[in-house]
Computed example of a mutant assay.
Amino acid sequence: MSEEDALRAAMQDLLIFTPTREMIADRAAFWAVRLFGATAGFVVDADGKVIATSGIDRDRATTLLSSPGRSGGIVRVPLHLAEGQGWLCVVAGDFTPVFGTDEVAQLRAYANSVSAGLQRVTVTERVAAVEENKTQFLNLASHELRGPVTVIRGYVSMLQSGLLGQLNERGRQAAGVMAAKVSEMNEVIEEMIEAARLEEGGLTLRTADADLREIARSAADAVAPLVESRHRLVLDLPERRVRVKVDADRTKTIIANLLSNAIKYSPGGGVITCQVRSRAGVARVTVSDEGLGIPRNGMPTLFTRFGRVITPETEHLKGTGLGLFLGRQLARMQGGDITVASIEGKGSTFTLQLPAASPQDGPGNGAAQAARDRMRAGAPEGMDRRQAD
Results as ranks from 00 to 15, higher is better:
M299D: 00
I56A: 00
T251P: 07
A356H: 00
A280W: 11
R197W: 11
R296Q: 11
P225E: 06
S288R: 01
G41T: 01
G154N: 05
F306D: 10
R328I: 00
T286L: 07
N365H: 14
V98K: 05
P225R: 05
S229M: 11
R197H: 13
K245I: 04
E228Q: 15
L317M: 09
E4D: 12
N365D: 15
L159A: 01
A222C: 07
D249A: 14
R70A: 10
L258V: 08
G347Q: 02
G323Q: 06
L317W: 07
E184M: 12
V223Q: 07
G84M: 03
D47E: 12
L354A: 01
A32P: 09
Q12T: 11
H80K: 15
L198E: 04
R279I: 08
S183D: 15
K245G: 07
E83S: 09
A61H: 09
G364P: 03
G347N: 05
E381Q: 08
L35D: 10
P295Y: 03
L79T: 06
A6M: 14
V91C: 12
L138I: 10
N261I: 05
F99A: 03
A331N: 03
L118T: 10
R277H: 07
Q369N: 13
S342Q: 02
K181N: 15
R146K: 14
G378T: 02
S67V: 12
R386P: 00
R386S: 12
G72N: 02
L107C: 00
G321C: 04
K49V: 13
R332Q: 15
A180K: 13
P355H: 06
L258G: 09
A195C: 05
E103C: 04
D373S: 15
A38W: 01
L118E: 05
V246T: 06
D26R: 15
A10R: 11
K252W: 01
A224K: 13
R76Q: 14
M1Y: 14
G48R: 02
R197Y: 09
P225I: 07
W87R: 08
V123E: 10
Q329Y: 08
A219W: 01
S161L: 11
V114I: 10
K245Q: 13
R170A: 14
R197T: 03
Q334D: 04
P363R: 12
R284A: 12
G307V: 05
G319M: 02
T63G: 14
L317K: 06
